Amino acid sequence: MTKNNTSPTGTPWTGMVAVDDTALAVTDTGGSGVPVIYLNGQFATQGYWRHLIAALGPGWRHITYDERARGKKSKLSADYSFEAAVRDVDAVLAARGVHRALVVGWSYGAFVAAHWASRNPDRTIGAVLVDGAQPSDWLDEAMELRIRKLFRRMRWFMPLLRPTGLAPRLTAEQQAESNIELGRVARERELGPVLDRITVPTRYVVASGTSFGSRGDEQERIRAGLDAVVTRNPNIKISAKVASNHGAILRKDFPAVVAAITEVSTLADQQPTD
């Protein structure tokens, strides 16, 4: 599946991984440490993880990638759905020869990580969900209209950022549809059962304050949905609530994410094996 004949372990590797009708830009630090795959925010890039990866250091095997039409190199696709994002995790791990990994996701990536961990308990060492995957019925008709209006306004300056890789190569309509689909994925009746099925050590790191496009205490009300989750599932706990907001958490409070990853890995080592 990879375009290079490089060994899945050993030296660092950077290349393109083919999946469906597209190809994803992937970076793998290699080595024999615990494999950690990092799942990006909805329109973010693998560069967002640099502080966290540097802090964890070379004792881990870090695998990052840019989703479809994100970053500078990942290719366009006919499918930008949430299910495609989940499939991409499998494609990247298979291409790098990794059967079992610790999944870390931020924002949109936390939803992807939760779904992947729920569906693949035998392949998941553990999960760290960073300010995302919080069950909440925040999507209604008024919110859909607000989302569409927001992305229509953004369409004028997004092309200026695309050559830098800081904006996705998606139309305003595609970005809006992706955000609206996430609202459906986040509904309590949809996400609640997914989280209830997680059987591996899972930790949340939660931000404070707002996220892009949110108003007032909307984000805090969404985060409150985690209380019921941790009550129902003993495998899931809130590791930390940090001072930084949603957009700054990986830059300003990455030590809390490092601590959660370390805790999850330790707990996984302590679990009995069949």
Results as ranks from 00 to 15, higher is better:
Met1Ala: 11
Met1Phe: 13
Asn5Ser: 11
Thr9Val: 13
Thr11Pro: 15
Thr14Ala: 12
Met16Leu: 14
Val17His: 03
Val17Cys: 03
Asp20Ala: 10
Leu24Ala: 04
Ala25Tyr: 15
Asp28Leu: 04
Gly30Lys: 01
Gly30Phe: 13
Gly31Arg: 02
Gly31Ile: 01
Gly33Pro: 00
Val34Trp: 08
Pro35Lys: 06
Pro35Ser: 11
Pro35Cys: 10
Ile37Glu: 00
Leu39His: 00
Leu39Lys: 00
Thr45Trp: 13
Thr45Phe: 13
Gln46Arg: 06
Gln46His: 13
Gly47Ala: 12
Gly47Arg: 10
Gly57Pro: 14
Gly57Asn: 09
Pro58Glu: 15
Gly59Met: 07
Trp60Ala: 01
Ile63Gly: 05
Thr64Ile: 02
Arg70Thr: 05
Gly71Leu: 03
Lys75Gly: 01
Ser77Met: 02
Ala78Asn: 15
Ala78Met: 10
Glu83Ile: 14
Arg87Glu: 03
Arg87Trp: 08
Val89Leu: 07
Ala91Thr: 06
Val92Asp: 00
Leu93Val: 04
Ala94Gln: 12
Ala95Asn: 08
Arg96Asn: 13
Arg100His: 05
Ala101Met: 04
Ala101Glu: 02
Val104Trp: 02
Ser107Pro: 01
Tyr108Lys: 01
Tyr108Val: 01
Val112Thr: 04
Ala113Pro: 12
His115Val: 12
Ala117Lys: 06
Ala117Glu: 05
Arg123Gly: 01
Arg123His: 09
Leu129Asn: 00
Val130Leu: 02
Val130Gln: 01
Gln134Met: 15
Gln134Ala: 15
Ser136Val: 13
Ser136Asn: 06
Asp137Ile: 04
Met143Trp: 13
Glu144Phe: 09
Arg146Cys: 04
Arg146Tyr: 11
Arg146Phe: 11
Ile147Asp: 01
Arg148Thr: 04
Leu150Pro: 00
Phe151Gly: 02
Arg152Ser: 11
Arg152Pro: 00
Met154Gly: 06
Arg155Pro: 00
Arg162Trp: 11
Arg162Leu: 05
Thr164Phe: 13
Leu166Pro: 00
Pro168Ile: 09
Ala172Gln: 03
Glu173Thr: 13
Ser178Asp: 10
Ser178Tyr: 07
Gly183Val: 15
Arg184Lys: 12
Arg184Pro: 03
Ala186Met: 09
Ala186Val: 03
Arg187Met: 10
Gly192Tyr: 06
Gly192Met: 04
Val194Leu: 02
Asp196Pro: 14
Asp196Met: 02
Arg197Ala: 08
Ile198Arg: 07
Arg203Ile: 01
Val205Ser: 02
Ala207Arg: 03
Ser211Thr: 12
Ser211Lys: 14
Ser211Pro: 00
Gly213Glu: 07
Gly213Trp: 10
Arg215Trp: 15
Arg215Gln: 14
Arg215Phe: 15
Gln219Trp: 14
Leu226His: 03
Ala228Cys: 08
Val230His: 07
Asn233Val: 09
Lys237Phe: 14
Ile238Gln: 02
Ser239Lys: 02
Ala240Lys: 05
Lys241Met: 13
Lys241Leu: 10
Lys241Phe: 11
Val242Gly: 05
Ala243Thr: 10
Ser244Met: 05
Ser244Tyr: 10
His246Leu: 12
Gly247Leu: 11
Gly247Asp: 09
Ile249Leu: 08
Asp253Ile: 00
Phe254Met: 01
Val258Asp: 03
Ile261Ser: 03
Ile261His: 09
Glu263Met: 07
Val264Leu: 04
Val264Arg: 06
Ser265Ile: 15
Thr266Gly: 11
Gln270Ser: 07
Asp274Thr: 14
